[in-house]
């Protein structure tokens, strides 16, 4: 039938234009104009070794670093995801209670009432690179005590790595945990 023949030929032309030309044109311009971003905003240390991506969170458990959000996939960035607990799921409450108990032992100086909710909830991607400024502030006493960096210096670092709302309107202010911890690591030495 004619429809079949025209469909096959149209499929071929559309594939050339929409798949081959379109994807490659975007790729070519992106690689020429913004190679850093186009390749994943990777961050290298002084030795040229890749330590992560500005956009991808990583697991921080040592008390001398600022900690990110709960991640059911432990920030393994070859995947992404969350446990998808419903608000009524008892496992959600159990996990949040465990997070709060851990907070109390790690941060004896900061009461639970000062812990913002983003620190005890799983992000959507499991790779959230950021925490709220309040979540960073709540960790200042612990990090200062362990690293010996003054609280004021830490607050300055937090401010340096706080990304405001886009155009002052869209989204929420957020602190990049990896960039913040790179500063902490450098100041420690």
């Amino acid at each position: 039938m004619r429809i079949i023949w025209v469909t096959l030929r149209t499929t071929f032309t559309v594939a050339i234009v929409c798949c081959l030309v379109y994807n490659l044109a975007v790729w070519a311009v992106a690689q020429a104009a913004a190679p850093g971003k186009a390749n994943g905003s990777l961050i290298e240390n002084a030795e040229g070794q890749v330590v992560g991506s500005k956009l991808i969170g990583q697991n921080f458990t040592e008390p001398g670093y600022f900690h990110g959000r709960v991640s059911s996939i432990d920030y393994e960035a070859n995947g992404s995801g969350s446990p998808n607990y419903a608000p009524s799921n008892p496992e959600l409450l159990k996990r949040a209670e465990a997070s709060i108990a851990a907070w109390k032992t790690e941060n004896p100086d900061v009461p639970v009432s000062e812990v913002p909710i983003d620190l005890i909830t799983n992000s959507g991607s499991g790779l959230d690179p950021q925490i709220s400024p309040q979540a960073a502030e709540a960790q200042v006493p612990r990090v200062s005590k362990v690293t010996g960096i003054s609280e004021d210096d830490l607050r300055q670092m937090i401010e340096d790595h706080t990304q405001g709302r886009s155009l002052g309107l869209f989204g929420e202010p957020a602190v990049n945990v990896l960039e913040l911890n790179l500063d902490v690591q450098a100041a420690r030495k």
Binding site: P87, V112, P116, S123, D128
Partner: peptide, 15 residues
């Protein structure tokens, strides 16, 4: 008893 002015954050991204 945590600070919850951010609203429901489970499954959401901070930015």
């Amino acid at each position: 008893g945590v600070q919850h002015s951010q609203g429901s954050m489970e499954g959401k991204e901070v930015r």
